[in-house]
Design a protein around this nucleic acid. Structure first.
Lengths: 152, 152
DNA sequence: CCTTGACCTCAAGTCAGCTTGAGGTTGCAT
DNA sequence: ATGCAACCTCAAGCTGACTTGAGGTCAAGG
């Protein structure tokens, strides 16, 4: 059983509830806490209690991950959000818009790639020398640190 | 110096040349060989010699990686290509078309996500319960093994 | 001949993002 | 009061895709 499904009007939820509501593994949630993406308070018996708003925070993390952001980037976005207070609609809107920018960029990149690939299918080359689709200058330029993005 | 830049009409190239031409690290090329993605012959002194056509093969690997394919998938695609023979135009076309399918799917997924995100920006929610953008059923269904795709 | 740089092998390390396991504690229902 | 699910910590393991390091070999130019 899942440690009491809200008795009366309890804002602090145990980790299992958070896990169930987000679909995350308990271990993942603990990991995120360790990474500083979310915070918790402890009970007398040293058990974590999360605010309900942390479920949203995690929801955001999951969405951002789907967009290919690494936890470090996500942390940066989240840095502007207050821990322990339900974020405002404006908060979410700003971040959502920022994510939208990410998606746009990604779609553009893919579209360009597809166009190049179409040319390549025409000529059947895939040669490093001649093919637009790939050349090592691009790659060297685009390298840099950070997590591996698809098509970046 | 790079071990003889082709003297006369030599089809076998040392690993350093392959590295230079592909932009890959020597260690990466050795790793790909270990994984079975490319093959080489050895000289009397136990040094690898690659066919020039392997540069194309690697070119393909790099392109496919950009599209988010893992080495395992790439290996599957490449399985149809002959080692040690310059692949035909038809070979490349078939594979290129297959990659095109990948890209298309990826663009569609991103586009759908963007649409949902637009709705979300409207309402500012990002709630796991109500938001179309994310729900754990999807995620559970889409899980499975294999490498982590962005937006999959 | 000797140096130098490209090459070799093998083992171990790295990074992200977690999971798994061992071994132990809490706290709610009965 | 007791049993058992849910919780705790800490260390280690895992996957993918490589890199790094140690310690040694090969080959060509001066």
């Amino acid at each position: 059983m899942l440690a009491k499904p809200a008795k009366g009007r309890n804002d602090l939820v145990p980790i299992g509830v958070v896990a169930q509501r987000t679909g995350l593994a308990v271990s993942a949630i603990r990991y995120y806490e360790e990474r500083g993406l979310i915070a918790s308070v402890r009970t007398g018996g040293n058990q974590r209690r999360f605010l309900r708003s942390d479920i949203r925070r995690l929801s955001f993390i999951l969405i951002a991950q789907r967009l290919g952001l690494g936890l470090a980037e996500i942390e940066r976005e989240l840095a502007s959000l207050p821990h322990g207070r339900t974020p405002t609609v404006l908060d979410w809107q700003r971040i959502s818009r920022s994510l939208r920018g990410e998606i746009d960029a990604r779609i553009q990149l893919l579209t360009r790639t597809r166009n190049k690939l179409d040319e390549c299918i025409g000529c059947g080359c895939l040669s490093l020398d001649r093919c637009q689709l790939y050349n090592k200058e691009d790659r060297a330029a685009a390298a840099g640190p950070g997590p591996r993005f698809v098509l970046d």
